[in-house]
Amino acid sequence: MARPRLAVIKFASCDGCQLSLLDCEDELLAVAGAVEIANFPEASRAVHPGPYDVTLVEGSITTEHDAARIRAVRDETAVLITIGACATSGGIQALRNFADVGEMVRAVYARPDFISTLATSTPISAHVKVDYELRGCPIDKGQLLELVSALLAGRRPVLPSHSVCVECKLASRVCVMVAHGTPCLGPVTHAGCGALCPGYHRGCYGCFGPAETTNTATLAAQWQALGASRRDIHRAFRTFNAASEPFCREADAHG
């Protein structure tokens, strides 16, 4: 059987998620043996034209040009996987959605007239059909390997959509919110990181975006009971997944 052809395509993003693939280290040779890396400029200058069997898409759509380009990417691939908060929810750059982009461009660039950009940063799913998504800022390497392995085997990938709390409890971590009074976004955040931050006595900051079911209003009220200000809550929900609907709505409620 021919190895599936893999492409890694970047839109507005920091490259951190696609670097997770190179970061696989121990498993990297196995990945390279299992798939033909046909288009991955971060790894090789040898870029082969499509069509591809699987395309990992990083980044959000912030320009007209990219809005057209993602449709071409979709046309060229059988399976499209979005990787990371930018691709799945618009990323940190979606903060522009709540501000005047023209004003930002004038503040940042010496020649604003050179800049052609959209007023919003939107996830890939707002433009084309997405087959699988991996959350996180950045994504979890283990989840990436799990998804690739599942696709190769033709089985369902194990990517639970429950809260980070489940991962905390599976790992025997003590709840930072209940035992320390530390505000934590874990109860409304999608699993996948293995409850990394609570493992270091930090509250989850929601980089995997909303879980399958969220109750941000009740969690925000509890944050207030623990001493968080309205501004704290607004800012907590307005980070890497600011444009995801539940987080956007809750940030607005404390704006």
């Binding site: 429950h162 809260s163 709390c165 489940v166 409890k169 599976l170 709840c175 874990g186 109860p187 409304v188 879980a211 079911t213 969220t214 109750n215 009740t218 969690l219």
Partner: peptide
């Protein structure tokens, strides 16, 4: 249901 976070902590503990 309005108060519950559906976070699953109760079932885990």
């Amino acid at each position: 249901g309005q108060r519950c976070l559906a976070c699953a902590n109760c079932t885990m503990v």
